[in-house]
Amino acid sequence: MKKLGLIFVILMLVFLYAPIIVLVVYSFNDSPTRAVWGGFSIRWYIELFHDKSILDALYVTVSIALIATVASTIVGTLAAIGMHSMKPGMQSLYVNVTNLPMLTPDIVTGISLMVLFIFAKFPRGYWTMLLAHITFDAPYVIFSVLPRLRRMNKHLYEAALDLGSTPGRAMRQVILPEIMPGVVTGALLAFTMSLDDFVISYFTSVRSANLSMLIYSMTRRKVPPTINALSAIMFTVVLALLLIINRRDARQAA
């Protein structure tokens, strides 16, 4: 029974990894068509770094993910602290509003924002994409920070005030350290969501493309082999990120 289970799990892993491995292998194929193997070469990697559209898209993706993460982490953390001290009715209103973008299908979120920007005669591009990313990132931060606040001993803050601390100092030295793990988790989630987003970016930007949008437009036309090299690099980056996060978790657990 155990053996059967292991075989099944291995089969599933083959299913999940087969296409990725094939892409990585093809990225070293010298021939431009996938039909023939032209020998080992790294020419697609070299071409990749000379392709202006790919480098531009990389810049858009990373810069938007970074700015959106910082902005949504600040706004979201403040919002969570504010929501935590609200009266129950008001708080549940805020929680519901925060739930809204998480329950709305991406395509509807993207379209409604697109309609807003067109309605407001705001040209769609880099900045509108950034606004959209902050909007869908913030709820992830809030839902990571809020549980931390709820679990926190609320007398700690009062004790700090009783012992003569100013509210600002109590916030920085008592509340912030307590909720920090939630803030970091929220920021990581926001960063990943932003990095990976296609649908919302697709609707909220026309002139600036992130990597997902570029890949989409590439797959609609004739696919250049550089995309294989790009996949291989992105896969390696993800692998490295996961290993770092895993190690960080392991160290925290120890």
Binding site: G82, M90, L113, V115, L131
Partner: peptide
């Protein structure tokens, strides 16, 4: 209960970028 205004920028943001767009969709 003074800290609740911390959520105000977020509330305004969500009003503008979540509620208003949905209202526009409903209108259309």
């Amino acid at each position: 209960m003074k800290r609740s205004w911390f959520a105000f920028p977020y509330g305004l943001w969500m009003l503008l970028f979540t509620i208003v767009p949905i209202v526009i969709i409903v209108y259309y």
